[in-house]
Amino acid sequence: MILTLTSDPLILRKLAKVATGMRLDLVEADRLPEEADLEAPPAAVVVELASGDWLEVATGTKGRWPQTMLVGVLGVPDPAIWAEAEDLGFDMVTTKGAIGRALPKRLEAWQKDPGGRRLRLFAVDEVAGRLGVVKRLDHPETGPVAVYHLAGDLVAVSDLCPHAGAMLSHGEVSVDDGIVTCPEHGSRFDTRSGERVRGPAD
């Protein structure tokens, strides 16, 4: 089920198409229902960020249904509201015009991996024009993260080798194929897929 807390006709039309295509029910509400009112948690809760109570909706949704995808919709892009919504736990922020295209892919991926939400790490313009390792971060939700700029793609992966805990970002990386080599024992990993290419790491 997709639960929506908006009365905007354009958003509702687009959500109806998404729900039909994904074989989900679309439920319109003017407030978050009590858990007892629903047979199962919704797959997604969609909130128009122009409404005054979206902060309460964010905390209420994540408090009741941590596995539910929380989606915020803006009439026009507003970087300040967008960033605030992401900081408050919205798993996806989009515009009215893009929700019909963006939501199905993101919701399908979310249903396969409910914990796999996007985290805002830094502004892309901070690393423009650089290749290889462009950032090393210690994020509170993920631990050490290395961000690589590889042939036009930005890729963020765990910076710890699973074999002995060495910092992978201190090893060599090929910007052509995205393979990083652990500086400690030579294990190799594909930064785009996370797969081990060569041991000794498992």
Rank of each mutant, 00 (worst) to 15 (best):
E56A: 15
S51K: 11
V47E: 09
P144W: 09
E39P: 03
S7P: 02
H163K: 12
E39K: 05
E35S: 14
P66Q: 07
V157W: 04
K135A: 14
L15H: 09
P200Y: 12
L150T: 11
F122N: 01
D138G: 00
V73R: 00
H185F: 07
L168I: 04
R31D: 11
F189H: 05
A80T: 08
H185D: 09
R130L: 13
W65H: 05
V127K: 08
V197P: 02
L24R: 11
L10T: 14
G63H: 02
F122I: 02
V147T: 14
F189M: 05
H170L: 14
V145W: 07
P144K: 04
V27W: 06
R198Y: 12
E86H: 13
K96A: 10
C161D: 11
P33E: 10
T142K: 10
E35H: 01
Y148K: 05
T20F: 13
G165F: 08
R136F: 06
D78K: 10
G171T: 10
D87C: 03
L154M: 08
S158G: 14
M167L: 12
S187A: 15
G100A: 13
E34A: 13
L74D: 05
R31Q: 14
K17R: 14
W54A: 02
R64L: 13
E39F: 04
V45G: 01
C161T: 03
G152E: 10
G171H: 12
S158Q: 05
V145Y: 08
I2Q: 03
Y148S: 04
L70T: 04
V197N: 11
D25R: 15
H149T: 00
G178F: 11
L103I: 09
G152W: 11
V157I: 15
V71N: 03
P77I: 13
G143A: 05
K112C: 00
M167F: 12
A123V: 06
V27Q: 13
L70M: 05
A43N: 04
K112M: 02
G60A: 06
V197W: 10
Q111N: 04
E184G: 07
G171A: 09
W82C: 02
E48G: 10
A83S: 06
G115Y: 09
P114F: 08
S7D: 15
G52T: 13
P42Y: 10
E86P: 00
R64H: 00
M22E: 13
T68R: 03
L26P: 12
L154D: 03
T68L: 07
G60M: 04
D25F: 13
L131R: 09
L103H: 06
I99Y: 00
G60K: 05
D78V: 07
H149E: 09
G152N: 10
A43T: 04
D113L: 13
A109S: 03
V180F: 12
A128D: 11
E172R: 14
A164Y: 04
G152K: 08
T68P: 05
D91K: 02
C161K: 06
H163E: 12
I11P: 01
W110A: 12
D177N: 15
R120L: 14
P144V: 01
G129N: 07
A98N: 07
M1D: 10
P200R: 07
A146K: 03
G171K: 10
G52P: 10
E141T: 01
P33Y: 11
L107S: 00
H139I: 08
L55E: 08
L154C: 04
G21E: 08
K96V: 15
G21W: 13
P9A: 15
G194D: 02
V76I: 03
R198A: 15
